[in-house]
Design a protein around this nucleic acid. Structure first.
Length: 496
RNA sequence: GCCCUCAUCGUCUAGAGGCCUAGGACAUCGGCCUUUCAAGCCGAAGAUCAGGGGUUCGAAUCCCCUUGAGGGCACCA
């Protein structure tokens, strides 16, 4: 294979990675990055790797890795190498790869590209405070950059465990061609001597990601825009170690409604919360793809397969996007309506089990849910709305203010109408929506009421609500007995 | 403060010099349909393409400046 200097060879197999750090639950921004990597890999028939960057022992959050993996699984972003599945380039946890980083650091140090730094946290903090106070750019002042061997020995003798810093070139510029941004140039003088190896022996992100991307033969680094500014450090590192650098593409960020970076403090929703709120993974996938990528000037609804087929870096925008929940809801409704009833029932069942009042007997009857869900399908935007919308189907007794029955008629007329309806229905044989309509529609004029008046009244009596699925279908699902019982209850309410 | 990036309707976006009197979608507002609510269909409103200079016969599209926004400047990733 031909190796080209200054970037990945075009014919190199595509290998991309999603490299989350287990310091919290992944939000839509994190997962969108994972998704673009996945789409890119699948489109090019390449490899999608998941690598856990757990080099910060202190910030590590219990359960975060499982959350990351669960998020990926939920969206169907299966990974070819990584946790659980392994791979030829493992292990895929950086905490288990420490032995790879040390030799690199030693090599760098002996080659004069890195040096031990013995400065204390206190000194560093004081230095930074002073720099900020004087309006200077914060950054390590390189005090330990040119320590003599004697000085180093003395610090070592004091038992100080140094960090290893990269000896950033003082002059010159570092440039690279970002696949999305184009040419980006940094003056080396604006870069400080960043830490490669922490005093606890763990590598920093900069070191670990460069070493691992090389070892794992990553061809393209697709990561969020927030990394753009540290890319020159990585390029410099690649050069110092003598690795071929992968190609970079910095994805536009997803911003919160307040236009700032998504973070836990801003209440950035974990992706799994969307699952729990009843969003469909296929809708989520479609929606997220459109945040920063587009196919053309009109296509918005794309299946997973279409996304894979059409995805390309060229069509990723440069602008940060704000997460628009309203559009997600619309799209989710779209996908929800496309589901066939059995599929919808299976997906909805857990939400009914979870959200229906505890007074409702468990387990919830599947075929009943199927009938209910069929009526609610085009009225719900999320799965979680299904039990809310259909709660009245399951309640033993309805609880609503009598006023709802009196919106169009007075007490007398209302109770008279309901009494007549009750009699008619009691005598009715087949209780399907066809016969219900055939019976009730003529009844309106018999009672000298408009259909609107009669049906509105009946709707409230039977559902306890003014807005519900079509009346006759609703009654059919409810069944004769329940309908009669509710109508009687309404009559009592009117008289009481 | 310094560095980097970005800049089209409220939001997501199309637009890679003439096809743009700027297109689509969500949301909004009307109308139709209708037993309610939805869904669906039709329509409206909504962007002097951040502002200012250039370049060009011609600029949302190229260049410069300004402004604004975002990101970065940790022994965090």
């Amino acid at each position: 294979m031909v190796r080209q200097p200054g970037g990945t060879s075009p014919d190199r197999p595509v290998r991309v990675r999603y490299a989350p750090s287990p310091t919290g639950y992944p939000h839509v921004g994190n997962i969108r990055t994972a998704m673009f990597n996945w789409l890119f890999a699948r489109h090019h028939r390449g490899t999608f790797i998941v690598r856990i960057e757990d080099t910060d022992v202190e910030r590590k959050v219990e359960g975060a890795v499982e959350d990351v993996l669960e998020s990926l699984r939920w969206l169907g972003l299966e990974w070819d190498e990584g946790p659980e599945v392994g791979g030829r380039y493992g292990p895929y946890f950086q905490s288990q790869r420490l032995h790879y980083y040390r030799p690199v650091v030693e090599q760098l140090t002996s080659d004069g590209y890195a040096y031990p730094c013995y400065c204390s946290h206190e000194r560093l903090e004081a230095m930074k405070a002073e720099q900020v106070r004087r309006g200077q750019p914060p950054g390590y002042d390189r005090r330990c950059r040119n320590l003599s061997q004697e000085e180093r020995s003395r610090f070592e003798a004091e038992g100080i465990r140094p960090v290893i810093r990269f000896k950033t070139p003082l002059t010159g510029r570092t440039e690279f061609r970002d696949l999305i941004r184009g040419k980006v140039v940094f003056d080396n003088s604006t870069l400080d001597d960043f830490v490669l190896l922490k005093s606890d022996g763990y590598p920093t992100y900069h070191l670990a990601n460069v070493v691992d991307d090389h070892l794992m033969e990553v061809s393209h680094v697709l990561r969020a825009d927030e990394w753009l500014a540290s890319t020159p450090r990585h390029i410099l590192l690649y050069q110092a170690v003598g690795y071929e650098s992968p190609q970079f593409a910095h994805l536009p960020m997803i911003l919160g409604p307040d236009r700032s970076k998504l973070s836990k403090r801003h209440g950035a929703t974990s992706l799994l919360e969307f699952r729990d709120e009843g969003y469909l993974p296929e809708a989520m996938l479609n929606f997220l793809a459109l945040l920063g990528w587009s196919l053309d000037d009109r296509t918005e609804v794309l299946s997973r397969e279409e996304l894979v087929e059409h995805f390309s870096l060229e069509r990723i925008s440069k602008t940060a996007a704000i997460f628009n929940i309203d559009k997600l809801r619309w799209m989710n409704g779209l996908y929800l309506r496309k589901l066939d009833i059995d599929d919808l029932t299976e997906r909805a069942l857990p939400f009914f089990e979870r959200d229906l009042p505890s007074s409702v007997r468990r387990p919830i009857d599947r075929s009943y849910v199927r009938a209910v869900v069929a009526l609610e399908q085009e009225r719900a935007k999320t799965l979680a709305e299904l039990p809310q919308l259909g709660e009245f189907f399951f309640m033993e007794e309805l609880d609503y203010p009598v006023d709802l029955l009196l919106q169009k008629l007075n007490r007398e007329k209302a109770s008279q109408a309901l009494t007549t309806v009750s009699q008619k229905l009691g005598a009715l044989g087949p209780f399907d929506h066809g016969s219900l309509e055939a019976t009730l529609r003529p009844l309106a004029s018999d009672l000298s009421l408009t259909t609107k008046e009669l049906f509105s009244l009946l709707r409230v009596a039977v559902t306890g609500r003014t807005a519900a699925p079509p009346l006759f279908q609703t009654m059919e699902v409810l069944g004769k007995e329940a309908c009669l019982r509710r109508i009687e209850a309404a009559i009592r309410l009117l008289r009481g």
